[in-house]
Every structure is written in structure tokens, then in C-alpha cells.
Design a protein around this nucleic acid. Structure first.
Lengths: 352, 352
DNA sequence: CTGAAAGCGCTTACAG
DNA sequence: CTGAAAGCGCTTACAG
């Protein structure tokens, strides 16, 4: 292993001079020695020791990405998490940071692990609302959360307009003549609660309130189960809003097994606009969130705070929009003219 | 920040004693002092400094996961990579290791980065066949590759029986009466070359050789393009073997747009048996590889070598099998009895 | 522009 | 069972 000392000896200078050259403290070293040291370092194949630098400078250049984990699941099998992490690993190492990934079930691990590695910043994927205050108090480094609806002040968060997403789904159903609707998703999370709220508020104001028994807890109950409940209701809902494209895909599968046709027997709207939504048959109408933008903003906020620790905290809310494809049946009588609601916000989807 | 020194002072012992207690060198410290030190450490909220330990002990407890990256793509949008990485992050931290993730386009980064962090081991996802010899020579730490067909000796690799996978796909088509077939995949990679070889060998031995013009480079050419070529061939193939479920999904989409019915106009077999294969309509017949097992074995091999650096190198080849679903049409005349080929290896797929 | 000194928080190796 | 010394490879802070 080549160290600063080895280079210093060969170059006939002190360790300090070599250190300065390696850290590009220009103007602090004469061009000639700088040049010579650089050449020798290259010849010798010098590789700076990050752990030594981290210890001495108290600056690890490590960013931690922390994903909420549940027993018997794999957080990276959720395409959203995987793609988001991928974007982070594309962006931050290009700025000189190394990425450590950690799954947490018990959040007390988080602080221990961050401090142990002297991480300079952290990004949180998944719902940490209940622990967010303590995490922030325990860690005085830049922290960026995503999709949090915590009311704690002075945290950084990048989220989307989930409420509007719910509204858009409701509007899309209404504008196609649907009035009896159902909802399925993991109701306990803040994000989903907002989507549900937007959905039911919009339905209520249109005079077609969402019935309590048509709010289904998924995946607590299986898609097949929920589908059965929906179909057996009287009168049965004609449309189902599902809180992720992947969950929607499970409903597609359940529908196929049950001989229920989408959209003829049941219309479906998803959420995310991930690739799977285009792979489904019929292609899924969904609420699009811009994951790339979200990841980019998350990294941007983190980098801002890394460079200037007094930057104000930011809570970002990115826009969402409706992507119309083929999973919502038009129930309007042929005579009816298109509703203005669709025209305003809808995006033309692809039709075979 | 609480250090060993702080605890030592409070406990009235030397730093060394505290260090011994913290590292569980039992039998080296009297039970009473050990107990007392442990209590004080807990009271003071001691968190060991991993970077200091790493520097002093030359043992970082860092495992690097290195993914092959291409410009303008996101390696973690490939479900296989994401799920694999997720499994790793489930397994290795439970054994006391921290995971760093790195994407590489230029492989000379790899060594620099591994050495800089003094990583204790590394796992490679993606094709590194051409660089594998040099990577192994440059890094004297345990390295585990996946899906490599490199002929370099003394590397660790976990792969699957790609050749057999190709054979199984061919057999499945043949046993359903298909004789004119096509292949689509990224032909340059070793893994895919094996699948193609198995596929075409089996077809040839059955007297229905794969025509050169029916080997299509995907995604070099778009699914829509390839589909068009296939449909316009004369005589047109009745079955298409695609080298991943996700690629198959793209062909489904292209088929839908082109008004081509699967399996009536074209039968399709995929590879991987990822969740998407069940989401497609019709559900995809595919060659299953056990990703969980693969990840587990990869970690096992790495841990073996971490614990005993003289363990012999291992090249593992995991089995694959056919999962029959609904994307292969039966072309046999009604009178024909089921082929023995299907009975032996086929797994009954789900039928609505 | 350059360097000698001290120290980051820990472990190894030796002495008792 | 316990500790004093030296050192891991680097940076900070000071002196010139």
C-alpha cells in the first residue's frame, strides 16, 4: 500500500506537501513541486485511504440511504424504492460521495449506524413519520426524508401532491360516468391517507360519496378477497382506485383468475406510472409521479445542506398528473359530450 | 462524541481494557470490570467509531456491491439487480457488515474505490467477463461474481444453467407442436449466448434448426421492429424465446399495439420467472431461476472466504426449470397425446 | 510556499 | 487479568 509518506520520501518533500497536492490546495504549493509530486503519486499508484481521511478530517464522504424494512419483505422489490436508490447512486458518487445502504426495522439502529460510520448525510425512503422527530434530534447532519407527512418543523422532505392525485383519480372516474367507486391501499400510511382523502373529498363534492365499506385495506386483505367483496356489493362499484401500479397489477391478476374483465366489469386507476402500467392489458390509467425529479431534488437538497449547513430546511411538494390509458371504461351514454374535467387535465394515453 | 478514553476515565481503567470489553474478548477481562465498563459505556451512549477501527485494525467490515452501469440507464430499474441487491442488504448487515453500492462504467474505478475504502469483499452484478482477470489480480480480497462465463480460474462465481434454460424453452415449444421459432435478446453477453446455444442446439437435434435470420438483437432493435420482422418472415415463426421476462413484457406491449395476439398469433417464452410474468396477459410461460437462492449462495461464498481466506474458489451453477403458463399455444392436432417432454419437466402453470 | 508537531479513535504487540 | 507504547494514514493548526 502506497501512503503519503512513501510519496513524500521519493519526492524529497514533507508529508504535508503531498497532502496539499492530493487535496488540490492550489496556490499553496509551487507548481513545480506540485507537478512532480503528482507524477510520482501516479507512478506509485497512490490511492488515498478514505478511512484515514475520514478519521482525521471528520468528514467521511459517506451518504447513507436508509430504507424502511418489514420482516419477510424485500424493500428493493418495490420498484419505486429500487429506481429511487438507483438514481441516488447515479448522482451522489459523481459528486464525490460513497453510498451506504441500510434497511431498518428498528429505527434505533439508524442513529447508531450513522454515527458509527460518521455519515455526512442521509436519505430516507419509506415512512418514518413516527420516528422522524427523534431521528432529527439525534443526528445533526443533513437529513432528507421522502413522502413524509410529519408535522415536525425544520426537516427536509420531498413529496408529491398525493391529495391531488386522489382528486384526479376521482375526476377521471366521474368524467367517464362512474359514480359507485372503491378504494384499495395500505390505509395506515400518511401518503395513502392523503390519496384517499383527495379521492373521497372529490367524490363527495360531486354528490357520490365513497362508501365506508368500499375502502379496502390492501395488502392486509388479498386482491382476490377485495375483488370478491367489491363484486358482491349491491350495488357493485364500477371503478377501483388502487394506490400503486404494482398493487393494480395484483388486482389485474386476481381479476383474470376470477373471470372479471377490466375495464368491462371493473375499471381501475393506479398510481405512480411505472413501466408495469404499460405492460398490463389493458394498459393502466394511472396517476403519474415524476420519480426522476423526486430523486434529483432529494439529492439537490442534500448537497445544498452539505455545502452550506445553514441552508433553510425545505419541504417540497411535486406535482402529479393523470395519464389516461385503457383501464377506465366510458359509461356515459353515447350522446353525452366529453366532460370538461377530462379535457383540462387528462393526458392522452396510448390506444392500440 | 463518547470515546474509549471517556469511558476509561470514568471507569478508572485503561483504554485497552475498555477496548477489550467492547470487542468481547472474554476471558481477558475480569467479569466485574467487564460488567462495570459495559454499564458505563451504555450510560454514556458509546458508539464505536468504525472508521477508526477500520484504520487501526485494517478491517473495515465494508462489503462493496458493484453493478455494471451503462450511460442513460439505471441498473436498479432492472428488477433482477434490485431484488438481488435487496437480498444482499438483508443478509450481510445481519453478519456485521456494511454495504456500499457502486455503479461502474469504467472498471478501473473499481479497484481504486475498493482499496480506498479498504473493502473486505465485493460482489459483482452484471457482466464483467472481459475485466474479470484484472479485477481479480488487482484485488486480493474475496470477490464473488455472478453470471460470469469467464474462463479465468480461481474466481468465485454464482450462475445458473443458462444452456439448459435454452433447451427447456426449445423443448416446451417443440412439445406443443412449434417448429418455426425465433429468439430475441442481447446477444453479446455470455449468459445470453448460452441460452441461445441451448435453444438452438435442442432445435437442431429435433430437426428444426433455428434460422440465422430469426436470431434478433434486442434491445438493439426495438420489440416492435423485431416483431414486424418475425411476422413478415415467410414462413413466419410461431414462437419467440425472449431472454428475460421484462423483455417479454415489451414484446407483449408491441404485440398489443400491432394487433398481434399472444399466444394465438405468436407464442412467447420468457426467462427469470419474476413477478411481471404473472402480471402479463396471458400469463407468461418462462424459465425460472431462483434468485433468492442465488443471492443466498453468493453471500455464503463471500462469508466463507471472509472467515477463512484459504477456502477454495467456487463456481456454482444453479438449476433452472420451466414454468408453464398460458403464453404458448398448443399447435398439436387434437388427436395427439401429450408429449413426454412436457410431462417430465413442465410445471403446471396457473390457468384461469 | 513548506514543514514539524499533535492528534483523529482505535488496535496490535509486547511487557508485566 | 491489565496497561504503556507505538502506530494505522491522514489532516488541522501553527510556525516560519
Amino acid at each position: 500500500m502506497v501512503t503519503l509518506k512513501d510519496i513524500a520520501e521519493r519526492a524529497g518533500v514533507s508529508i504535508m506537501t503531498v497532502s496539499r497536492v492530493m487535496n488540490d490546495k492550489k496556490g499553496k504549493v509551487s507548481p513545480e513541486t506540485s507537478e512532480r509530486v503528482r507524477r510520482i503519486a501516479k507512478e506509485m499508484g497512490y490511492i488515498p485511504n478514505s478511512t484515514a481521511r475520514s478519521l482525521a478530517a471528520r468528514s467521511s464522504k459517506i451518504i447513507a440511504v436508509i430504507l424502511r424494512d418489514e420482516p419477510a419483505t424485500n424493500p428493493l422489490e418495490i420498484p419505486y424504492n429500487a429506481a429511487f436508490l438507483g438514481k441516488i447512486v447515479k448522482i451522489l458518487p459523481a459528486c464525490g460521495y460513497s453510498i451506504m445502504v441500510h434497511f431498518v426495522q428498528n429505527f434505533s439502529d439508524v442513529t447508531f449506524w450513522l454515527k458509527s460510520w460518521n455519515a455526512e448525510g442521509a436519505i430516507f425512503l419509506g415512512i418514518f413519520d413516527r420516528e422522524i422527530r427523534q431521528i432529527r434530534n439525534d443526528n445533526q447532519i443533513p437529513l432528507v426524508f421522502t413522502d413524509s407527512y410529519s408535522n415536525v418543523r425544520r426537516i427536509n422532505n420531498v413529496g408529491i401532491d398525493d391529495y391531488k392525485g386522489g382528486q384526479l383519480a376521482a375526476e377521471c372516474f366521474l368524467s367517464h360516468g362512474h359514480t359507485r367507486l372503491a378504494f384499495a391501499g395500505p390505509i395506515s400510511s400518511g401518503v395513502i391517507a392523503e390519496r384517499l382523502q383527495g379521492f373521497s373529498d372529490r367524490l363527495r363534492s360531486a354528490g357520490h360519496p365513497l362508501l365506508p365499506e368500499q375502502t379496502h385495506a390492501f395488502p392486509d386483505r388479498s386482491a382476490a378477497d377485495i375483488l370478491k367483496s367489491i363484486r358482491e356489493s349491491d350495488p357493485a362499484p364500477t371503478g377501483l382506485f388502487v394506490t400503486s401500479d404494482n398493487a393494480a397489477a395484483e388486482f389485474y391478476e386476481a381479476a383474470r383468475r376470477a373471470g372479471v374483465s377490466i375495464p368491462d366489469d371493473l375499471s381501475v386507476i393506479g398510481f405512480d406510472d411505472f413501466p408495469v402500467s404499460q405492460m398490463l392489458t389493458p394498459a393502466l390509467t394511472t396517476i403519474r409521479q415524476d420519480m426522476e425529479e423526486k430523486a434529483q431534488q432529494t439529492c439537490r437538497i442534500l448537497l445544498d445542506r452539505l455545502n452550506n449547513c445553514s441552508s433553510p430546511s425545505e419541504i417540497l411538494c411535486l406535482d402529479v398528473n393523470l395519464v389516461e390509458r385503457d383501464s377506465v371504461r366510458d359509461l356515459r351514454p353515447p350522446a353525452a359530450s366529453p366532460s370538461p374535467l377530462t379535457g383540462e387535465r387528462g393526458e392522452s394515453g396510448v390506444t392500440p
